[in-house]
Design a protein around this nucleic acid. Sequence first.
DNA 1: AATATTTATTAAACCAGTTTAATAAGAATC
DNA 2: GATTCTTATTAAACTGGTTTAATAAATATT
Lengths: 190, 190
Amino acid sequence: MEDLKKTIRSYAQVSDADMEFGLRFYKKEIFKKGDYLLQSGQYIRNFYFMKTGCVSYYTIEEGTAQVMEFFTEGYFFTDLYAYIQEIPSESYLEALEDSVVYTISKTDVQKVFDHSHQLERFGRLSMQRTFVINFQRINQLRNLSNQERYLRLLEKRPTLFQRVPQYLIASYLGLTPVGLSKIRKRLSQK
Amino acid sequence: MEDLKKTIRSYAQVSDADMEFGLRFYKKEIFKKGDYLLQSGQYIRNFYFMKTGCVSYYTIEEGTAQVMEFFTEGYFFTDLYAYIQEIPSESYLEALEDSVVYTISKTDVQKVFDHSHQLERFGRLSMQRTFVINFQRINQLRNLSNQERYLRLLEKRPTLFQRVPQYLIASYLGLTPVGLSKIRKRLSQK
DNA sequence: AATATTTATTAAACCAGTTTAATAAGAATC
DNA sequence: GATTCTTATTAAACTGGTTTAATAAATATT
């Protein structure tokens, strides 16, 4: 769990004792391609850390998947919206590849935060990080064209395009497969 | 500062001693209509709580204002993006009405969190609340039509339409004034 | 009250996406 | 290697917005 430890310490100073206390609650889990970590209607009880693999986070709107995010190596993830509010999820977490994760239950997270002010701070700061990412996301949705968002994704997460079918990337960008195909054609003609 | 106190306690249990400790750092400030609490290029050093009034939070993209949010009574606000990252702001906070706020500096916030685990928890939970709101925002940008978003806003914050000029609301919805006018016409014809 | 300024609507031409449907290309399975 | 299934592209008609410009309505100023 070295990479989990390192990721936590990239957010906040945590003593060895507190770190050990916290890490004891994490368990390793393995999902096969196609497995669901979560399905719509279920309560989400766990937080995840992606060791290796890829999980898509999506809802289904009027019959078609709307991909919110692709979680890859080093991501902390869950259905944070349902997790925070303790409401049944309206989303899916599906392994797009065989994936290895470390996972901790929400009740254990609470124990960890109660026990350690340092780890509660980690919790606050990782929420802040999530805020920053979501803020950028909103800005990009508002201020960039679809073509620009496609180009940014290509630049920022180039490996995604090898790992994930294009129609899911189209969905992630808020497009239809046809729309993305048009953008790609337009770009290739220059 | 009763309403500030009440709002804090709506997030987390806070003892009278800790609450008193925290509130001592807040100062009352008054802004006149048209005043800037923040301008692009400046560092934002404070967190605000809106007692009475209205402040718009916007960037300028290619010469035109892009309104991110209208902060009204009971809102905690700042340019959270620049605040968290301690980078120069790219945004403006402008009073659309004479406004009374309570404000605390970031360094004092840090003091408060260091001193009180309960208030650090308030900090984490208010970040969570912000996450939930941003998440809904992203979902609405992705999944709703402009018309639907207009109708939701009308339903959720009806008083805004009396307080704020329509072209700013158009901007908030990610539209041009012409676009919003068309939507309103289309709706009125039914 | 008259005038100037700001804000909102309308019209016309345009554009980047959509939907539907057909086709082509690629990957998996027998 | 042929067949089937999945994924990507293309075409055509359509749609909900955009831009620009003119006009109308509301608000502020003298």
